[in-house]
Design a binder for these strands. Structure first.
Lengths: 274, 274
DNA sequence: CGATTATTTGAGTGCCTTCAATACTAGTGG
DNA sequence: CCACTAGTATTGAAGGCACTCAAATAATCG
């Protein structure tokens, strides 16, 4: 695979600059691609944490089954995302992960992550930045689940997906494919499937969202964003310049207490960061 | 300050093993202690991200003001917590932070964090683990805000605080101090202050929670946990042994430039989760 | 084409909200 | 020591949003 084609390399390049060596290190995460089918369980809640994975094709989601038989979907994963990083600090999975549609995932181990920490401060910072942004998305979801009406929740989710999909080239002029049933949408939004249906009906009547099965059209995305009180900061805000600046690295080398003599072998200048 | 007394060192020691040098590196984060008063704003939403801080005394919370005048409290910080790490990847703050009561905070910079990445893989992994666990707490909150009744939300929050406070020695036999008004509790739980009051009343009548101003007593903590469908995994689950094993580090040192040829030199098994 | 699953729509219910009024607590100054 | 004030907590009444149950329609798949 070409270095630039990898979804995960692209994801990282939005968060830090990468040398060729670092790209190779990242691509190692995708050494073991595995084709999976729609509905396949990647892992179950409470199973032992042995590895993580990246998703290079298809959609997935993480979920928790609740006591009363209902279920909460926690996060929707798109190509380029790393799945299960949160479990890094745990022995047992806090959530299951399942495929929404067929795709390709690649498993990698704890050690792989540690290797990244060990070999590249830039990748470490990038990984940290990605984790921070994931947490920001989660926080935003928490706010609208706790505080907002069904219309605002659905509007927010649709607009967020629209932005995320646009970023990976899967949305176009307010139109995109959304391979989720209303049941699944309900599980994401903390609503009953019935009420999701009613909310879509209301949107259709208002001309805010048109939907034909899994095709969604937003005639006026900004109107939807406004309804949702969508504050794009958590998705659009710039990553600090620091992440793209490799200078600090050499400065740091001058610092005290240095324990590892050189961890970026030879490399100090950005090679091909855009 | 004695190395062991620092709340932040203790926090890290729950997530990884530390050498003396690493403790020193951590204590540097608390070089600039600052006394702050109840209600003081540490930083405002949308302000520029310049630094982070640790809290060594007092309680704080992060919050977002919403369009309709309401407010969501996102996270409650206790001594030993790092505040604002999520902002690491952003130029502008996504949330404000304010003190609940007077306390001591210490500011530190981006560069400090990078210095940690640079100098200690163990601290990096520990920091990552702490971030993962914070995200787990957030996820749990998302679930109960999205899905559960007022009683379950309050029960969950009280029990969670009980565990967290117990961990830093501030709870004892089901009794602890909770310096939050019902208004603030409502902002945490996504409920109106009025309904928080009603819920406390119901708990008192059921003998589940006794409250006198800011003193809370849980006569039967486990009953409360059961009501909340509290699944302690996200707080209690063991950190993988790997975090306390410094062996992998020296192994890594064996092959700094080595790329893919040997990805887990020698002990590929032991380091994996227990 | 028939069986199954997904979506739509209606009717009735319940949890939590808002509005409003009352009681309590803590802090202040006479 | 008490009256005054401002913040906090309690309790009641009415209303709305989303839920469940139930039935009808539409889409998908073998």
């Amino acid at each position: 695979m070409n270095l630039q084609d990898s979804a995960i390399v692209q994801q990282f390049q939005q968060h830090c600059s990468l040398t060729e060596e670092e790209k190779v290190l990242l691509l190692e995460l995708e050494q073991n691609p595995l084709k999976v089918n729609a509905g396949d369980i990647i892992w179950q809640e409470n199973s032992k944490v042995d590895q993580f994975c990246t998703i290079s094709q298809g959609w997935a989601y993480s979920f928790r089954n609740l006591g009363d038989g209902s279920r909460q979907i926690l996060k929707v994963y798109l190509p380029g995302d790393i799945i299960g990083m949160r479990d890094f600090a745990f022995s047992n999975r806090l959530a299951g992960v399942a495929m929404i549609e067929e795709g390709i995932v690649s498993h990698f181990s704890h050690e792989h992550l540690l290797k990244i920490f060990r070999h590249s401060t830039a990748l470490t910072a990038g990984l940290f930045a990605i984790a921070c942004r994931q947490q920001a998305v989660l926080t935003e979801r928490l706010i609208y689940l706790a505080r907002r009406t069904a219309q605002q929740r659905l509007a927010h989710f649709l607009y967020e997906m629209y932005l995320r999909l646009g970023r990976i080239g899967a949305a176009d002029e307010g139109r995109f494919r959304l391979p989720l049933s209303q049941e699944q949408l309900g599980d994401i939004l903390g609503l009953s499937a019935v009420h999701v249906s009613r909310t879509f009906t209301a949107f259709r009547e208002d001309g805010l969202v048109l939907r034909d099965r899994h095709r969604v059209t937003l005639p006026d995305p900004e109107a939807l964003a406004q309804l949702a009180e969508f504050d794009g900061g958590y998705l659009n805000d710039a990553v600090p310049a620091l992440f793209f600046d490799r200078e600090w690295q050499s400065h740091m080398l001058a610092g005290p207490t240095a324990r590892s003599d050189e961890q970026m072998p030879g490399k100090s200048k950005a090679a091909s960061a855009d």
